[in-house]
């Protein structure tokens, strides 16, 4: 598993370097306007895009013949997605704290809760996108990816329209302690690993 994580990190640092930089820029925009996008983008970049890159280079054909289990080949993309979400969380928190220290903007007390909400949404999105991409491959799976990205984009747009969409959602979720819904989202996401593995096996072992 370590080797697979190492391989994906190398790919992030070589093939996706520019896209990774975009994520850093998104997270650093003052006021946190693009923060919801940052989380979704980070998750897609570190998991869905890597599935696609493996398919394009045909690494996935070779990997099936190396001493990795099918479960490991799938799980590594989940782990990379989680690392991406954690990176988005850390970058967003750090940049907003930095702006507050520099006096550029004030630090909203609801920010940690809001960031956790975005992270939870990204986890649920991952739980939808990865099984589809593993089962049907990136070329067909991207239709679902685009569809869901559109839904989230629409939701973000709507929230910007009345200015308080995510804060409203936050009010609803604030009844549940942050760790609980974050863990719930992570559990939902992790629960789809066997589904992704089964879908992946069905596609590649045909």
């Amino acid at each position: 598993m370590k080797a697979l994580i190492r391989k994906d990190i190398y790919m992030m640092l070589t093939q996706f370097r520019v896209l990774f930089l975009v994520m850093v820029i998104f997270s650093a925009i003052p006021g946190g306007l693009l923060m919801p996008f940052t989380f979704l983008y980070a998750m897609m970049l570190t998991s869905v895009s890597l599935v696609s890159a493996d398919e394009q280079s045909q690494w996935d054909s070779l990997a099936l013949m190396l001493p990795y289990s099918r479960g490991q080949l799938v799980t590594v993309k989940y782990i990379m997605g989680w690392l991406g979400i954690i990176a988005a969380l850390a970058l967003s928190l750090a940049s907003q704290a930095l702006y507050a220290v520099a006096g550029i903007s004030e630090l909203d007390s609801r920010l940690p809760a809001l960031l956790c909400l975005y992270a939870a949404i990204a986890l649920v999105m991952q739980a939808v996108m990865l099984p589809v991409n593993f089962r049907f491959g990136y070329a067909r799976g991207r239709i679902v990816t685009i569809l869901f990205a559109g839904i989230i984009g629409g939701a973000v747009g709507a929230s910007m329209g009345d200015g308080d969409g995510f804060y409203t959602l936050l009010k609803v979720t604030s009844r549940i302690p942050i760790p609980v819904y974050l863990l719930l989202a992570a559990a939902i996401c992790a629960a789809t690993i066997p589904l992704s593995t089964a879908g992946y096996k069905k596609r590649v072992e045909k």
């Binding site: 391989k7 190398y10 790919m11 070589t14 093939q15 890159a53 493996d54 280079s57 045909q58 690494w59 054909s61 070779l62 013949m65 190396l66």
Partner: peptide, 12 residues
Amino acid sequence: VVLDEAHFPTSL
């Protein structure tokens, strides 16, 4: 294993 096109990620 050696496959016909090597199949390594090309950015590495």
